[in-house]
């Protein structure tokens, strides 16, 4: 199980990083989205994996998974949505304003 998750996180990071290094805005945003998946899974998994032990207290149950990474990741998911939305609009504005969607400044652009 750990191996599945680790390879998945690694692959998501790799594909996300590759897209992050592209020169157009949309692939960069997709890359960031993939990297947020990977990072959220990473933080979540850092608490250690456990099956069928959700942190919902029940009488008679003593084994629960670590709730702290879950709480961290929950807000991280929501915040990463907000940030994705902001950069999407930035990309949209850049495209409408400049007429191209390159992320690198070309010669003669105002720094």
């Amino acid at each position: 199980m750990e191996l599945y998750l680790a390879t998945a996180i690694g692959l998501l990071t790799a594909v996300g990083t590759y897209l992050l290094l592209r020169g157009r805005s949309f692939p960069v945003i997709l890359g960031l989205t993939l990297i947020s998946y990977a990072v959220n899974l990473f933080i979540f998994a850092s608490g250690g994996l456990r099956l069928s032990a959700p942190p919902i207290l029940q009488s008679g149950v003593t084994t629960y998974t670590d709730p702290v990474p879950q709480a961290l990741v929950l807000t991280a998911i929501v915040i990463s949505f907000a940030m994705t939305a902001v950069i999407t609009i930035l990309a949209l504005g850049a495209w409408l304003g400049a007429g191209h969607d390159r992320v690198d400044m070309s010669e003669g652009d105002e720094p």
């Binding site: 680790a6 692959l11 996300g16 990083t17 990473f42 998994a45």
Partner: peptide, 28 residues
């Protein structure tokens, strides 16, 4: 190459993390 190495590093790190006991007692 950069992406593959980054992915490899992140994947190996989380694998190492998941297969080890916590060094300190968790606040869980």
């Amino acid at each position: 190459a950069i992406a593959a190495l980054t992915g490899l590093g992140v994947g190996a790190l989380i694998y190492a993390l998941m297969t080890r006991q916590m060094a300190f007692p968790s606040i869980a």
